[in-house]
Nucleic acid binder design. Structure first.
Lengths: 240, 240
DNA sequence: TTATTACTTTAGACGGGTCTAAACCGGGGT
DNA sequence: ACCCCGGTTTAGACCCGTCTAAAGTAATAA
């Protein structure tokens, strides 16, 4: 079959590809997986032989349909696990990622099914990332853009938050910024610092590095008086 | 740290040692793990260097205190997972083993803690096997012996059932024989077939191979009539 | 005692995944 | 045009866990 390591490569390629489109460079993968470029080149050879990626020398790699399916399967496992850990085992928003990374390659299809059933087939994980469906249909592009690309006066809703950095996540949880939170941008400093007002009226200044990790969409019903707050998308530290 | 593979060896050695005492032979481990004896010899060398086992050439291996602790940790993970899967995710008695085997090496201490808490610190898994405590104190010997060592007229209670074979487990579940079931032995055929009556009055005949996997203890409150105090203390050295 | 037999260990090889060092593109800048 | 430099690939090595084949050992049967 496919080793854990190969699954990791495929997942990484998928995610980079989703962010910046193909081709995916050797060094981007190396950075994402904390491997040397030489190691990545060698693994890309293997992946290509197996028909999971296509590749052009010195250019980069791209997932084949088959490779994408594998990546989606891994991603489904990962995000289902994140959702399950947060919902059923009281993990906080920021803790789920590492645990899911460790387990995603080792759960059975049966486990996947039961977890999905226990959660009623969730469609997003606690960070707001979409969970691929059981049939692994490709995810559609998502129209959210990083908060750092928005301008003063924009009213937006947080759609997802990159789950890369644990510390950032905790910082944002404290700030009350989770998927579903409505924000208005009140200031953008020249060096990238962005100040937002949350739906509770609190103002928060966020360094650019963090603003890049917060993906937002235009607020559908941005009548400044009523800001619907349901968004029952799991988030928040300890509620249930 | 320790690889999954090493943990598997340690777990296997622990379990064989618990059944038949040290020293544990190379071939016993090879059989348990489905590896060739040569492979086992080589891994035993590694384990010895790491101080996890002691070894006498051509005799066999024995866990050191440290090796035992590792084994107990793995076993705790395994059995906690089995209990969790059965209780929270509706797995049947017979399904839990494989899944737990796949996950036991990959859960964090945090996960272990939360699962234990969710189940209220269970002390036995669904097969009746004891779950090592969080501090990994060695498990004490257990006085149950295989059903196959008992005699006609004995009244016993199933204390645990070996989780080795999925088919056997399903067979027994169908027969209503699970940890806690009270049994009276009504017949022992010369070729080992044992017939028992369950507490519901149903009679079941069990081939010797299965009777060996059912560990029973004397029924403490044999509510019916005589037959008490027959606490056969043989240290279940049993085998085939 | 010696020969047979079952089990264990050694020797040597291999594939996977990783690394370092060195060679190799290929797209700017001058 | 040329060279330089960052990124990429090759070459070669290493460790881990595994195997097969062959040699070694221990216990037993004759």
């Amino acid at each position: 079959m496919l080793s854990d390591v190969m699954e990791d490569y495929l997942k990484a390629i998928y995610q980079i590809q989703a962010r910046s489109g193909p081709p995916v460079s050797t060094s981007a993968i190396a950075t994402a997986l904390d491997k040397t470029p030489a190691t990545v080149t060698s693994m890309l050879g293997t992946l290509e032989e197996r028909g999971l990626i296509t590749r052009e020398k010195y250019k980069g790699a791209e997932l084949t349909r088959e490779g994408e399916t594998v990546a989606l399967e891994v991603l489904r496992h990962h995000r289902l696990l994140e959702a399950y850990l947060a919902e059923q085992l009281d993990y906080s928003w920021s803790e789920v990622h590492e645990e899911a990374d460790a387990l995603e390659h080792h759960i059975s299809e049966e486990f996947e099914r039961r977890v999905a059933a226990a959660l009623d087939d969730p469609v997003v994980d606690p960070h707001g990332d979409p969970i691929p469906s059981a049939d692994l249909t490709p995810l559609e592009e998502d129209e959210a853009t990083p908060l750092s690309t928005r301008e003063v006066g924009d009213r937006v809703v947080v759609s997802r938050v990159s789950d890369r950095d644990r510390e950032e996540l905790e910082y944002l949880a404290d700030a009350g910024i989770t998927p579903g939170t409505a924000l208005e941008i009140v200031d953008v400093a020249p060096f990238g610092m962005i100040t937002v007002r949350t739906d509770e009226g609190v103002e928060q200044s966020l360094p650019e590095s963090i603003a890049e990790a917060i993906y937002v969409a235009a607020d559908a019903d941005a009548t400044d008086s009523e800001q619907r707050g349901d968004t029952d998308q799991r988030g928040g530290v300890g509620n249930a």
